[in-house]
Design a protein around this nucleic acid. Structure first.
Lengths: 242, 242
DNA sequence: TCAAAAGTGTTCTTATTACACCCATGG
DNA sequence: CCATGGGTGTAATAAGAACACTTTTGA
């Protein structure tokens, strides 16, 4: 193997085997939102080749001198305007031919956001940005459909291990909205009484003295999350320790 | 941004932004074993700079024309002689300065193996290969200690969601050995009766008409795994669906 | 006969499931 | 007055946790 010195930002020089150094690294962001009924996903329409005109996950190559996690946040911001979202790594996809132009390995990140609070706008190589119901997403650029599916599996796992909703619902919501969110994520119906019993027993909800208005049925009581307790729950997960 | 054509194996040509293409990608393997008492980890002593003489996870750069999963299997084989192990991806580590010679992003894989069945021998840039009790591992090359910790967390999660043991124990084992394995992974003691009740209720064990020999106490009955049922359990995990 | 680990059941508590009717509102 | 979704409790079952003594062997 042949060694060579190459110029490298942030470090003086490197002596690494040249043939390894013709690859790129990207991140792709799977941003889930909820509109009160359906689970949605944020996609961009690509304005560049390859896959120009295709819908895709917001993603791009990262810089040599940025951490991949920071890169994910930057790429998401540059393409969609979304910022200050909590991104969590899911999985790295590295089959040889996943990118038609060269060897590009990508790491998927996911996040949950409130659609209403997150105005998005297309920038950079994104020609459009839009929310799509996950049930209607079928064709995506690259291997992005596979990535999306992996992230949905991850989301399903997460929702079983800790409460979800703070990131996806408006500040005040009804228990039925929360239940619809769980049903949208887990893709099966739940019993109303059992769901309420369980979610209330977690002690992460605060009952408000406010009700829905203008609905053609008995108005539902509004709740909010007890932010402190919610966060503790998320951090610790359900404790399985003895 | 400046575009250029670079030579690329397996594809004709690429037009990708040059500054992105000075990085490398590696894999690191976290191989867990069990000796009947302690959880152990397979390490190599590096024979090359950087971190020459340090103990490290078996890891190396991957080739441009190999899938990362295949790369993990190859690297593990080349360094330690271990092959045909089931590798599962855990997490990708991509802070800028994690490798002193340049930008190297790495993906960690883990596996579980029977130490006795897996003769290992140092090759390539591994000067030595050896099993270490996880409790005694403290200094490792690069950020490998962080990677090891992440994989241990993953292993703890896994053991709560599906049975573990087939990959780590000899073909015939006692229930106490199995319990010691669980305790070694989860790092807390378990009640003998409750453990037995639970593991037997999974129906993945076959009671043998054989007993321990030559022990200075009442000899324990031997069990083996019902391979079919075990595999089904692993694949499906614990089903939480309604 | 002693030390060491094997083996074994019951009780209590908690979590999970299944299930049906009345209530408040807008149209 | 009707359609719509809101709101409520109980009983049965299953899972999890706590807990102590007898058995078998080799030394």
């Amino acid at each position: 193997m042949q060694l060579e010195q190459i110029k490298y930002p942030a470090q003086e020089s490197v002596a690494l085997t040249e043939p390894f150094f013709h690859m790129a690294f990207s991140v792709d962001c799977v941003i889930f939102g909820f509109d009160g009924n359906e689970l949605k996903i944020l996609l961009i329409k690509r304005g560049e080749e390859p896959f120009g005109g295709y819908w895709a996950l917001p993603g791009n190559l990262i810089y040599l001198n940025e951490n991949i996690h920071d890169g994910a946040a930057r790429v998401l911001r540059e393409l969609t305007g979304l910022q200050n979202v909590y991104l969590e790594q899911v999985e790295t996809f590295g089959t040889v031919n996943r990118h038609p132009l060269g060897r590009v390995i990508t790491t998927a990140y996911y996040s949950l956001v409130k659609i209403a609070d997150c105005p998005v706008f297309a920038q950079s190589h994104a020609e459009e940005v839009s929310w799509f119901p996950i049930s209607k997403v079928s064709d995506l650029a690259f291997d992005h459909l596979e990535i999306l599916k992996a992230c949905m599996q991850k989301l399903k796992k997460i929702v079983r291990g800790r409460p979800v909703g703070f990131e996806l619902l408006p500040p005040k919501f009804t228990l039925s909205e929360l239940q619809r969110l769980y049903e949208a994520i887990l893709e099966y119906p739940m019993d109303k009484r059992n769901f309420r019993k369980k979610i209330l027993s977690m002690n992460i909800l605060v009952e408000l003295e406010q009700y829905q208005e203008g609905v053609a049925h008995r108005p539902a009581r509004l709740y909010k999350f007890d932010e402190e307790k919610y966060k503790r729950f998320v951090e610790e997960g359900f404790s399985f320790a003895v």
